[in-house]
Each structure stands twice: as C-alpha cells, then as structure tokens.
C-alpha cells in the first residue's frame, strides 16, 4: 500500500511525452499557420503564452480590469472592481507597503488566475471542465461542470469563484487568459489595455528572458525573484516587483513542484495496488478454501462455500 511505489512504466511519463509532442505540434502549427501579430519575434518554438506583470510600473489605473469586463461581457464595467467575484476575472489590488528605503508607499497588484503550467484545478476536475489548453491559458468548459468545487479546494492561489446563489446551474468563473482572443490572433484584453507597460504579453520563455535581463540591468530596481517562474512548477502569469512578494499579498511557501505531480504518483500506483490486492485476496481464497476443504473432509462433512446467505443451513 505504498503510494511511493515507482511503476515500471509511469503513465505520467508516457503522458508527459505525449503531451510534449502534442504541444510541440500545436505550437509549430501556430507558428507556421498564424504567427502572432503581437510578437516581434517568434524565435522560441514549443513555448506557451504568458503575461509578464511589472508591478513597479503599475499605476493602479484599472484599465486592465475594465477592459476585461468589457471583453468578457461581464456586468459592472463602469466601476473598478475591488475583489474577484463571479463577474470579475481580474482586479487591481491596493497594498500599503514599506519600501526598501523605509518609506510607506501604495502599490497596486493585478490579481487573476495564474494559469499554472501544470494546473491543480485541471488535475482535480473530475469531468475535465477545468482544462489545460496546453498553450498557456487554463480554460473552463462550463457545460461539463458538475459544481463539485474541488478546483476551488485545489487552487494554490484561491482564484476560482463559484455562484453560491445559483440553485439551478451554478458555474465557476475565473480568468481564461482571453483564450478566444488568442485563437483569433489577438492579445488578451488586459494586456492590450495597459497604458503604462506594466503588462507584457508574449511567449513565456521570451518573457522570462526579458524579466531576467530587466532584473540584471536595473540593479536595485527589482528584487531578484520572478514570481511564477518556479512557484507550483511554474505559471504563465509572471510578476516582477521591487517589494518582496509576501508583502504584496502573494502566497508564500508554495512548493517548487506542481502539486498534481504527487497525485499523479498515486494514480500511477493505483493499478499496482488494485493488482496487488486482487492477487492477495484471490490467493487467500485459494489457500483458506483448500485448507477448509481438507479440514471438513477430515471431519467427514461436505465442503460448502460459506454462502452468501445463512438460509442455506436453515433449509437443510
């Protein structure tokens, strides 16, 4: 009953290979067929989309949040939202922080789904409603949803919102990284709307290279941490900041590996557990029944399978 048992052929490894192949094929198709107009260079093949959010540049203007509302036809588009809810996929959080120089300042943090590379919500979802598109966005297919809310439990960032007041068909809502717009060769609405250059859309690997360069070339401007590079195995949304991320309200102490890797180990072990228990139980049956037959034969009684009903004995 060990969950750590290493299978001979890990299904995860197999899937990983298959997924990598599929991903490469998809992206190659994307590059060949419809190169993204938003990108200056598509030099890095096989990579997924992402957004780099430079918190030092964010002015808290809320253009992104309002553009998101408009693009996704969400109600309440005239007032900047103050929190995530079923009608708000993203909002700009206000944080009072102490800078490295010791000054109290107000900072803004855009919050939304982090679009994990190996999303816990998609691993959790029993019907594939939460789905890793493989292109960066983690999407939600409402028609499959059973409303179990395991995605909310699973999400390390506490993002998905549930319609608690809908009795008939409550749905989950979260940022989809404008998956539909990506399909139509458009950049996500928030990134398009940002006037200060705090949001940069692109291929995740490109963004990481740029972010590292930014940290290196502006000594002291940023802390040496790209949030989302390694957190829970990496996310498509990446953050740069001059204030430690914990102060900015980001969950600290997240594992560097994706949580689904652990449950995948359990799933990979299940066939062996099933096989092991079956063999053990069947072997026990064979053993005890042979011994049972021997002992009853010695006593001169007919061997009978201890039946599914006690009435057998009563009828005799």
């Amino acid at each position: 009953m060990s969950t750590r048992k290493r299978p001979l052929l890990s299904r995860r490894d197999f899937l990983r290979g298959a997924c990598a192949g599929a991903l490469a094929a998809t992206t190659a198709g994307l590059l060949a067929g419809r190169a993204h107009p938003a990108l200056a260079s598509d030099s890095l093949a096989g990579q997924t989309w992402g957004v780099l959010i430079d918190l030092t540049r964010c002015t808290g203007c809320n253009s992104c949040a309002l553009a998101c509302k408009e693009s996704n036809n969400l109600p309440g588009g005239d007032v900047p939202p103050g929190t995530l809810d079923t009608d708000t996929y993203t909002f700009v959080d206000t944080r009072e922080v102490i800078t490295a120089a010791g000054r109290a300042e107000t900072r803004y943090v855009k919050r939304q789904c982090m679009h994990c590379l190996n999303p816990s919500c998609a691993s959790a979802c029993p019907v594939g409603a939460m789905h890793n598109s493989g292109e960066g966005p983690v999407i939600y297919r409402s028609n499959r949803c059973i409303g179990c809310r395991y995605c909310q439990i699973a999400c390390p960032f506490g993002i998905p919102r549930f319609e608690w007041r809908d009795g008939i068909s409550p749905a989950i809502s979260k940022c989809l990284l404008c998956y539909d717009r990506l399909q139509a060769n458009q950049v996500p609405a928030c990134a398009e709307a940002c006037p200060s250059g705090a949001l940069r859309f692109g291929r995740r690997e490109d963004l990481l290279v740029q972010a590292r360069a930014q940290i290196a070339s502006n000594s002291g401007r940023y802390i040496d941490h790209i949030y989302g590079e390694h957190e829970v195995g990496g996310t498509s949304m990446l953050y740069l900041s001059d204030i430690p991320f914990e102060q900015m309200g980001f969950p600290a102490g997240l594992p560097q590996s994706a949580p689904p890797e652990e449950t995948d180990k359990f799933v990979s072990a299940l066939p062996y557990v099933i096989g092991g228990v079956t063999v053990f139980m069947t072997g026990s049956v064979a053993y005890t029944h042979r011994r049972g037959a021997e002992s009853t034969a010695e006593r001169g009684e007919p061997a009978s399978v201890s039946g599914c009903d006690a009435s057998e004995n009563q009828e005799e």
Binding site: C125, P126, V127, G128, C145, I146, C148
Partner: peptide, 25 residues
C-alpha cells in the same frame, strides 16, 4: 452538495483518470 448533480453522467463519459475525485466518483 454538488452544484449541478444532474451533470453527474459527465464523469462516466469523460475518463479523467488523473483526477482523484473522478476515481472517488
């Protein structure tokens, strides 16, 4: 408890074996 119990059959047609909750269901 489940928001859309009438959608339960979705579990039977989508074999999301990576989901622990699917196995439970």
């Amino acid at each position: 408890e489940v928001g859309r119990p009438y959608n339960f059959w979705q579990m039977l047609i989508h074999w999301e074996y990576h989901s622990i909750l699917w196995a439970v269901g």
